[in-house]
C-alpha cells in the first residue's frame, strides 16, 4: 500500500473544512456556492482515494454522480441568485432572511 493514502485523505479533510468555514463565514451567496463546490470536490477526492486503495470501482462511479449532482445544484442555485438580484435586493445572505420566517 502506498504511503500517500493518508495524504490524500488529509487534503480532502482540509478542503472540506475550508469549504465549511467559508459557507459559515462568507455572506456573498456566489462565494458560498463556490465553497459548497469545494466541499463536494473534497468528497470526490475521498471517494476516488478509497476506490483506488480498496481496489473497487464504486467510489469512482459515485464521484461521477456527485459531479452531476453538483452541476444541477449550481444551475438551480444560480437561477435563484439571479432571481433575488432581479427583485432588487442586495446579494447579502445576512439580509436575505425572509425565507426562514
Amino acid at each position: 500500500m502506498s504511503g500517500l493514502f493518508p495524504g490524500f485523505l488529509i487534503l480532502s479533510a482540509a478542503m472540506f473544512a475550508i469549504g465549511a468555514a467559508g459557507v459559515l463565514v462568507r455572506r456573498n451567496p456566489l462565494v458560498v456556492f463556490m465553497c459548497i463546490e469545494l466541499m463536494l470536490n473534497s468528497a470526490n477526492l475521498a471517494l476516488v482515494t478509497y476506490a483506488r486503495y480498496t481496489h473497487t470501482m464504486a467510489g469512482q462511479v459515485f464521484a461521477l454522480i456527485v459531479i452531476a449532482v453538483a452541476a444541477s445544484e449550481v444551475v438551480v442555485g444560480l437561477a435563484l441568485i439571479t432571481g433575488v438580484y432581479r427583485s432588487g435586493r442586495r446579494l447579502d445572505l445576512d439580509e436575505l432572511s425572509e425565507m426562514s420566517e
Binding site: M15, I18, G19, C35, L38
Partner: peptide, 8 residues
Amino acid sequence: FLGALGVV
C-alpha cells in the same frame, strides 16, 4: 490547498 484558501 492554496486554491481552497483563495476561494474563502
